[in-house]
Amino acid sequence: MHELSIAQSILDLVRPYVPEGGRVESVRLKVGEQSGVVAESLEFCWSAVVPGTPLADSHLVIEKSPFLIRCDACGAESESEGGLAVCPRCDSPRTRVTSGMELQVLDLELLEQPPVRA
């Protein structure tokens, strides 16, 4: 259960990207299936860390990436269930992880600001 510290890290990372007076609508993340982060917990923790910041009204948009391995024996890239490193096509253990470990902030979307009156 380290989602709270992950949420805090995301907040610290994106805050400098919010322009003065700007409000954030959403933050888009890429979260690998085997990254060790639970999307639902992260969303819950996000709501706990944002109050009082320009991201107070924001929500997370989480794009999950599947766990993929490439086999050095048969060359196939396959989705592997349960995080196994054994090639589902030829049973070789000579594989490399090509996707599913990501934990990345992609971008943020700003809320439309009402026009400033002169």
């Binding site: 990372l13 934990l103 992609l106 971008d107 979307e109 700003l110």
Partner: peptide
Amino acid sequence: MSVVTIERKVLEKNE
């Protein structure tokens, strides 16, 4: 609606 690209690892500070 405007989008600000970030594309950074969440744990980059730890790294």
